[in-house]
Design a protein around this nucleic acid. Sequence first.
DNA 1: CACTAAACGAGACGGTACGTCGCGTCTTTCT
DNA 2: AGAAAGACGCGACGTACCGTCTCGTTTAGTG
Lengths: 179, 179, 179, 179
Amino acid sequence: MAATAAQLCDVGYLNMTIEGVAARAGVGKSTIYRWWPSKAALVVETLKSRSMLSPIELTGDSRADLRAVIASTFQIVTHSPAGMILPALAVDLIRDPAAHEQLHALLRPRRESVLTVIRTIAARGDLPADVDAGLLLDIYSGTLLYRVLLSGEPVTESIIDQLTDLLLSGTAPHILLML
Amino acid sequence: MAATAAQLCDVGYLNMTIEGVAARAGVGKSTIYRWWPSKAALVVETLKSRSMLSPIELTGDSRADLRAVIASTFQIVTHSPAGMILPALAVDLIRDPAAHEQLHALLRPRRESVLTVIRTIAARGDLPADVDAGLLLDIYSGTLLYRVLLSGEPVTESIIDQLTDLLLSGTAPHILLML
Amino acid sequence: MAATAAQLCDVGYLNMTIEGVAARAGVGKSTIYRWWPSKAALVVETLKSRSMLSPIELTGDSRADLRAVIASTFQIVTHSPAGMILPALAVDLIRDPAAHEQLHALLRPRRESVLTVIRTIAARGDLPADVDAGLLLDIYSGTLLYRVLLSGEPVTESIIDQLTDLLLSGTAPHILLML
Amino acid sequence: MAATAAQLCDVGYLNMTIEGVAARAGVGKSTIYRWWPSKAALVVETLKSRSMLSPIELTGDSRADLRAVIASTFQIVTHSPAGMILPALAVDLIRDPAAHEQLHALLRPRRESVLTVIRTIAARGDLPADVDAGLLLDIYSGTLLYRVLLSGEPVTESIIDQLTDLLLSGTAPHILLML
DNA sequence: CACTAAACGAGACGGTACGTCGCGTCTTTCT
DNA sequence: AGAAAGACGCGACGTACCGTCTCGTTTAGTG
């Protein structure tokens, strides 16, 4: 069931249809409504089940570790369905704080594990001890999201290094010359 | 006409209805369809007409100038209808590159004027001469957007200063103690 | 449902509206479209349900019997809603032989019972044994229909007797002096 | 102009559209509305202009003359566009006596010339002197119309002779054996 | 000959109804 | 009993024409 919901996410969140999911699952609509109050709840639960839980492995090289985290988010935003589904979902839920909270809960595990990585890097002394890990996460994630949605700039992998530099070395974003 | 479309944006982009707009404008549906091919096009044009064109005034104090720019985006994202409409629109258009480009065109004037501010600051020597102004813009805008949509963190004004510090001084985001 | 369709036939077939029927029935439009593919089909079925099934009672007096049949058609054509609806329907269906056939099927029971009356009269010897009952029916029905639709002549009850005479006695239609 | 209206009658009266006529004539809609108050009026006038005015030539053979008249109506009803347009028009106008009258006026010339034929036949003594020519006309016309619209019987040329016999000889309609 | 006024083409306008789609609820049917 | 199937009331979709209404632009006719 949740499986077919995910399947349907290949038509995009906005074009996804509860009737479509039901048909694809060989199931009555009422069965879906019995379990989930809304399309958003169904999608949230579906995403929760097949979460992006590749645990992050630390190498000891702080730059490499942070870069890996950012690169992973880059991949999700630019190349995975979730990169399009999550913002759509968030936008759909803006007016419903309760559902919005559920969405955050869904993202929390991933968020926590990234925060841990950042704090580990800070503990190594490669970031300030009092680093605001949450903000740091928001910065690179938000930048990537904004590039895709609204900036109009092409989104290339070079941004991964630019963000890594900015966050790790405090380097303002220089123009990066492509080779 | 465009006026009433904007009016209807107080029910939100997703709940906005072309029939609703037509009714509110005292106009036939066909009149709307004659001029705009889709809801998205109507909204883009509406936003274009009543654009947020408060020109940015430079003070000579680079920190104050950059902070003002960021604060202005903060206001839009958190307190203006456009803060909710633009992401919804972007999400709606993800699958249509042509329309997406129109959206970027809509945002370009504002973007350009901010880029000019950043380059001015760089010219003053308060940012590196080869600063990537576009990326810098994406960073603070994206961070603010992400906070509202997906982060789950409360969004307070303190983030304005944190972002200003990060971008201007290259300071990694420290935890900011509220007073 | 069919009831309200019939009700709406008091605005006439051409002015009847599926939305109007739906509203009057307190029903969604889709419910109507789920059951009938078109306005014509809906009307045909409605007419079928509330058919003019007053069985014809024979008196033994052939002239009286035939006159009663013609008079009944006269009533329908001149004073019942069906008199206006049926031609409108037939005209609407001219281009669709399948639907046209359905219309004939609707009329068939009435037609058959009239044919039986005519054959009974023939069996009594009051009409030729090899009378073409179908043609006879078409003659008086068609004449009445034509009078109402296209002739421009006033349609009075005197025509009933004229047709009866013509068909029964083989009398060419004389001018009938009104008393 | 009237020409193109007639042209459009090859999509049928019901599917004919004033916008379509205007487009086909290379003319603005307003020009049409300037001259005709309604679709029906336009069609009436169009038909009037290209009327079926083949004058009826008498041969002296009453049977042949009457048969020719009936056969001509048979042709119109079964094989000419007018055969479908006129009933549609009449049905459309049922609720508007004034327009209905215009329709009768349109048909009057043809009607009159047929009435003359009938009266001539009567004058020859081949029909009763006090024959109701109008009714006679209505009978054969109506029968033909009814056959096409509502009877469900196949419409063959044999009916021409049957009607001729009935009206001329007072013969009740016998079953006609096809050879 | 120039001027004016009508009729013109074009097509936007406020509407109405169309037939389709998907919603979220409710009922029936079968296992 | 619980799920599949799917009908239901609803309401927005995007389309097609309606009949009305400006708009310039011909195109005569008249002064």
